[in-house]
Simulated scan of single mutants.
Amino acid sequence: MSVDELSAVAARIRYHDGADVDPQRSPRPYLTVMTKGAVAATDVGPDDHPHHLGVSAAIADVNGVSFWGGRTFVLGEGSVLLSNHGRQAVRSRQTGAEGAMELLDWVGPDGSLLLDERRTISVREGDDGIDVRWSSELIAGHGAVSFGSPQTNGRDGAFYGGIFWRTPFLTARVRCADGEGADAAHGSLSPWLAIDGPDASLVAATDNDDMPWFVRTEGYVGFGPAVAVTGRRMLAAGERLRLDLRVAVLDRPPVDPASVARRLKAER
């Protein structure tokens, strides 16, 4: 496994190419993140969901191929382990002072190309923490593509898929513009999301204003803007889908998460 340092805060932010990830966990590059105080803000391969890989672009159903890993929800059967796992292969990479830019192939289990991706990851160190931005442009360069989730396939509430952040927190306080608690945030289009763990806090924002937040705090704590919620998302051949997640990684809960999110949104 190769690990790239992304910036002067490399002791806190590392990018892994995912080459040694088990095939049933949908191999893909991922980030591991710590706060300025060296507290872990991501979890990789936890016992409850071994296919959760820190921060990654993970979608459960792309033309029936899993880029999420683990089991697949099948209507009438539940979650079953299928031989449908894809992988993300890095085609090229450029690194600079504040981040990395990659071109990737999304490859099906039969070796077919489903998507091209242009990915940019940047990190900045501020007075109150570390800002992480992950931006992906998915390109249907090999034919039409359909994105789904367990919810679109029949499992209510399980609309995860997109840029997904798995935390190591056992419990967390959740806040958003629509109220406090996971029930208020899950499915919300709030312009900001705050996840306060025992020893670290995360404030998230996104340019994907049409993608509701997937938020879970029972069993594990994880979140991300969701690609497919009320129905499958379609891309015609040649079309593009932009994904974006910006997160301030803090050592303590912010008094005003909305102002932190506005700062994140203003960064280019």
Rank of each mutant, 00 (worst) to 15 (best):
D17M: 03
A19T: 13
A19N: 10
D20R: 12
D20N: 09
V21I: 10
S26K: 07
P27T: 06
R28V: 02
P29F: 02
Y30D: 04
V33A: 00
K36R: 15
G37Q: 13
A40S: 12
A41P: 05
D47N: 09
D47E: 14
H49F: 02
H51C: 00
H52S: 07
H52L: 10
H52N: 07
H52Q: 14
L53N: 06
G54M: 00
G54I: 00
S56N: 03
S56G: 11
S56D: 01
A57P: 02
A57R: 02
A58V: 01
G64Q: 07
F67I: 11
W68L: 03
G69F: 05
G70E: 09
R71A: 15
G76R: 07
E77M: 15
G78P: 08
S79C: 11
S79T: 12
S79F: 15
V80D: 05
L81P: 02
N84G: 09
H85N: 14
G86L: 08
R87N: 10
Q88L: 04
A89V: 15
A89Q: 14
V90M: 13
V90T: 15
T95W: 01
A97W: 12
A100G: 10
A100S: 14
L103R: 10
W106C: 04
W106P: 02
P109E: 09
L113I: 04
L115D: 00
R118F: 04
R119E: 00
T120G: 09
I121P: 03
D128W: 07
D128V: 08
G129Y: 02
G129W: 02
G129V: 01
R133F: 01
W134K: 00
E137N: 05
G141Q: 10
G143Q: 08
A144Y: 11
G148E: 04
G148I: 04
Q151H: 14
G154Q: 12
Y160F: 14
G161Q: 08
